[in-house]
Design a protein around this nucleic acid. Structure first.
Lengths: 206, 206
DNA sequence: TCCTTCCGAAAACCTCTCTTGTCAGATTGG
DNA sequence: CCAATCTGACAAGAGAGGTTTTCGGAAGGA
């Protein structure tokens, strides 16, 4: 259990963190563009400038690396949504929902590999990854349910089955954003955000 | 180019058709339950009672068999939707849309493997399958756009971006029906159909 | 009956890639 | 400077499963 020797001015932990960072970037590119099924560990490593030897020092399996990447992506989206919603407390509910929803989608909106991974590649990989995907989605649904019911209690939204509405919204967003990202001639950025915001209001508030 | 010899009272073409039928049933089970990634040709063949030798006489690759299965599934849904919509001409548009939408989802609604395949397993397999999925979806969108715009022209629906609405509806349906199928304690069949019908009306008509 | 065609089962082939191990050289701390 | 540690490159192990081929026997047909 020695602390390890310094190298290139970095501690062992820092070097590991840097390799992990590079691997996540490389994995995002390869998986997002070629697809997880066609992705090999070697491709990830080549793109990241990390040897397979170090890959397996960081991750036990290829799937573990994908799980790490997926968690990063989803955690960022989730954080954005929650923060945005919390920051707008006091504003009209319709506005808050639209903003938080768009904030949630932002990472996939601006990065095609991210959209490809979050909406397509994560599916059909394995039981384990499916459980991770569904459990992440469930926490999102619970957040929407809780805030939705609270809003109804405050008279800021009309009552409904928020689980149903949340699922509908998430599913719709998947299809819409993915389509927008791969479209050859998509509507403008601004129009798309407005339409998505309106959709969220329709399903969750109005 | 001989026509082949009869066997078991069946012509060569009939025997092929029977094997294909059994393979499709077997593949639906295996892929729908274990997932495409974990599916092997041998598992499909064992389940179907067909030898791998005959498998490769019918399909050039494992993926070809999956494509065949997926086309069957989607074609049936598409047919149901179109037929139902055509058969109700003259009725109120809201009713027609709700009915056609539920008819479209019926096959996935009553068969978990079908839902698993159509909503999850088809994704992330390969470029080719992704193209097939998207092109199928595109024909569905075109149908909705055409009928939607015609309805607007007749004053039976309010104008909107029907491509956007169709994508939202399809995506929402994926998430909702899949969730309903895998839920441990789902709402009743009837309730679910009503909710889905209302969603279709909200997004396409109201 | 006899020959041909077809059958299912199973072995064999083959490629791929995940994963582990080796190694010579670079870097560090003493 | 020296010994220990770390590095990236690369070879090799290992297993899985897709695909092809073989094979003995059953079923049609003349």
């Amino acid at each position: 259990m020695t602390s390890g020797r310094s190298y290139g001015g970095l501690t062992a932990a820092e070097r590991d963190a840097e390799r992990r960072e590079r691997l996540l970037v490389g994995a995002r590119q390869v998986i997002g563009i070629e697809g997880y099924a066609a992705t090999t560990v070697e491709k990830i490593c080549t793109g990241a400038g990390v040897s397979t030897r170090h890959f397996y020092l960081l991750y036990a399996t290829k799937e573990d690396a994908f799980v790490d990447l997926y968690r990063e992506l989803t955690a960022e989206s989730y954080r954005r949504a929650i923060d945005t919603f919390a920051a707008s407390a006091g504003h009209p509910m319709a506005e808050r929902v639209a903003e938080a929803f768009v904030a949630y989608l932002e990472p996939m909106f601006t990065d095609q590999p991210a959209a490809q991974i979050a909406f397509v590649e994560v599916m059909g990989v394995s039981r384990r990854l499916e459980e991770i995907r569904l459990s992440f989605r469930e926490s999102l649904i619970e957040f929407i349910e809780a805030e939705g019911n609270a809003s109804v209690a405050r008279g800021e939204a009309t009552a409904r089955d928020f689980r149903f509405a949340a699922l509908a919204l998430i599913g719709a967003a998947n299809a819409l954003v993915y389509d927008w990202v791969i479209q050859p001639a998509p509507p403008s950025d601004r129009e798309m955000r407005e339409s998505l915001g309106r959709l969220a209001i329709t399903l969750l508030v109005a």
